[in-house]
Computed example of a mutant assay.
Amino acid sequence: MLILLPPSEGKTPAADGSPVDLAELSFPELTTARQDVAVALAAISAQDDALSQLGVGASLVHEVSRNTRLAHEPAAPAHSIYSGVLFDALGYQSLTTPQKIKADAAVVVVSGLWGAVRFADRIPAYRLSMSVGLPGLGKLASFWKPKLASAMEDAAQGQLLVDCRSSTYAAAWVPAPERTVAVNVFTERDGTRKVVSHFAKHTRGELARHLLTRRGKAPETPAQLAKAAGEKWTVELVAGTARKAHALNIILTD
């Protein structure tokens, strides 16, 4: 089982530590692409119109400035850099040691800067969305798509892929639909369903934690995933097609 997550928008910078070593990150075949993105990001982040080009507000000027010195910023394990609703709900720090080992092996974060990283990979805090276009590289989702398809092939082989990514990050890698389950979260009230971003992020984080902490064998099929999720929520499993992944709909009721 692989659990695919988007990165958090905000990051928690490492207080100290050595800088990132690209050669030590998972999926080393992405090293050159990571270097290309980092160089382009540093260049655009140094421009007067960096905030608008990166699609962020004035309150994030310090985070954008950090993009210009990522090679020298302290790095820390990705699980401590990524923060926010989903990652708080997953609660890596409160996992047991065996559960942390399981998380380090099972979780892959798809990133606009790194392509894909695992929880134990040491990275610095940065600011970059997959929706951004960088000079010379174009839209990042399109830039990463062929590279991730190649790099992730071995890791995904024979695995059930639990896709908790948002649509922006899902566009950067489209794995084989027959072994992929996209996780959707709805709130339901008086028979009407709605998608609410905050609850979706939180519930996806809770699902990841449940899969990492529950007893028994990790799910290997969409049906087994639905059964595992059904231990905590009301769920529906929508069968996929030759071109579309299965869907696990988690229904939250008042």
Rank of each mutant, 00 (worst) to 15 (best):
S80G: 02
S65V: 07
V37D: 11
I250L: 06
A218Y: 11
L113W: 06
M152P: 12
K201L: 00
K100N: 08
E9C: 00
D49Y: 11
L140G: 02
S59L: 06
R193D: 08
L60N: 13
E63Y: 09
I251A: 08
P98L: 10
R127M: 00
D36E: 15
T213Q: 03
V183A: 07
G55D: 15
R69M: 10
L5V: 05
V132Y: 13
K147G: 12
M1F: 13
T203C: 09
A151P: 10
A125M: 07
L237V: 11
G136A: 14
F143L: 06
K100D: 02
P77Y: 04
L51P: 15
A226F: 09
V64L: 03
Q99A: 08
L41R: 10
R193C: 07
H198D: 00
A239I: 08
F143V: 10
R69P: 08
H210R: 05
W173G: 12
P77N: 02
S142W: 05
P19M: 05
W114F: 14
T68M: 06
L211G: 03
A242G: 11
L148S: 07
D121C: 04
L225E: 15
Y169K: 02
K145R: 15
R243A: 14
A33W: 12
Q157V: 05
D88S: 03
S94N: 04
P74A: 06
V162R: 02
D154V: 09
L225G: 15
I250K: 06
F119Q: 00
E188H: 07
V196Y: 11
S45E: 10
D254C: 08
H62Y: 10
A40Y: 09
S83H: 05
P77H: 01
I251H: 03
S129D: 13
R215I: 04
R127C: 01
H210A: 05
A155M: 06
K232V: 08
D190S: 10
L95C: 11
P135E: 15
G191S: 11
Q47A: 15
A151V: 04
A171L: 07
A149I: 03
V85Y: 00
R127V: 00
P19L: 02
A155Q: 12
I44N: 03
I3V: 14
D16R: 13
A170Y: 11
M152H: 09
T32G: 08
E231M: 09
C164Y: 00
A242Q: 14
V85L: 00
A78W: 05
P6G: 03
V110M: 01
D104I: 05
R209Y: 03
D190R: 09
L113V: 13
T192G: 03
D254F: 11
S142L: 09
G136E: 14
A200R: 08
A151W: 10
I3T: 07
L95K: 02
P6Y: 01
A141P: 07
H246F: 13
L252G: 06
F119I: 01
D49H: 11
V174F: 03
I81Q: 02
A120E: 09
S142D: 15
A50P: 12
L134M: 08
L225T: 11
A50I: 08
P74C: 04
I101R: 12
V110W: 00
Q35W: 03
T32S: 13
A125L: 02
